[in-house]
Design a protein around this nucleic acid. Structure first.
Lengths: 192, 192
DNA sequence: GTCTATAGGCAGATAGAC
DNA sequence: GTCTATCTGCCTATAGAC
């Protein structure tokens, strides 16, 4: 079920669920929390998402869809590889500033309580994002902005790991500049 | 309460709780799970750790204590800064290989359901570990192995973020070489 | 589609016997 | 210290009226 099949109420439910997952974790909130925030009864939520697994799947689907769209927009808006990476980094800095975690990063903690499909979705998120990063780095190298990489794949894996980990640590540090510093450092390593 | 005040049973409880937290998350297991694995009734567990918050605190305390001890041992066993960083990295590669997360990384997801003390403990873990990394990098620079850093603090923050994030992504990737690749890449950036 | 009411189970936690 | 028994409350989920 793609996210454009969902109606307004379903989207609002996912909005709240997404926020709660990113701040508290998927196992840490209940349908009652959504009820409280949205003013719609838990039984009505079950009407849209019969089980919490269904909710998880729909939530991740929509998140990944939107994230990959955002990356496409970056591709169109920014010219150079470095500018693209910086724009992507800004997304993560924003998430950290909101005291949140990447939805997929958070779900990775809860992964064992998710349906099998959920694991595949998360894997897809990391794969696709790394692929996009590899493309951007390649372009940066061709642009002459970034230095040649011995292993493009490892370099991309490393950048993503640093961003995911940065958001994690930032939550505890509560230091508003921390995530930006991690990003700058990671991109600095890629420069000439 | 330092961990040397705990008796055998308490330690065995913490062993199980630690494993469950690192694989499933703190909110995802119950006293009943410990009972199942240890053959001791939940009420007896409450005897040692009256509330789950108490359990969390004791668990993190012991984990940090042991981790910092391991870093001290590394300091004694290894001579150069780079060798020390590699030895520390091996700890994290081992955790990832066991399909686990760093205990503190995992708890950082659940941080809002922890007692306030827990947050301070996690902050201490990151601070101390970064401090140790900074020392090792400084030594590596003096040894002539590592290149000079514009900001020692940011470089250390970045390395720790990459390691924490690497373990996160590795859980989903289930690629045994992934974590090692992230580590190698991160250390490569520090080299000359 | 949204509601009220409720089932059935498991969570954290406590009392008190041994 | 470890046990049995039990409390209270919250969770996911369903039935059925409107």
């Amino acid at each position: 079920m793609a996210s454009h099949d969902l109606n307004d109420t379903a989207h609002r439910i996912l909005d709240v669920a997404e926020g709660l997952t990113q701040t508290q974790g998927f196992n840490a909130f209940s349908y009652k929390d959504i009820q409280a925030e949205l003013g719609i009864k838990t039984s009505s939520i079950h009407y849209y998402f019969p089980t919490k697994s269904d909710l998880a799947t729909a939530m991740v689907d929509r998140y990944i869809e939107r994230f990959l769209e955002a990356l496409e927009e970056i591709d169109q808006k920014h010219k150079t590889g470095l500018a693209k990476l910086q724009a992507m980094g800004r997304i993560f800095v924003g998430v950290a500033a909101a005291q949140k975690l990447c939805l997929c990063g958070m779900l990775t903690s809860d992964v064992l309580s998710l349906p099998q499909d959920g694991l595949n979705e998360l894997r897809r998120f990391y794969k696709e994002t790394e692929r996009w990063i590899m493309k951007a780095i390649t372009q940066g190298i061709n642009d002459g902005e970034l230095k040649d990489s011995t292993s493009l794949e490892d370099t991309a894996a490393h950048l993503l790991a640093a961003l995911e980990g940065g958001m994690l640590v930032a939550r505890v540090r509560k230091d508003s500049g921390y995530m930006q510093a991690v990003l700058d450092q990671a991109l600095d390593f890629l420069g000439k």
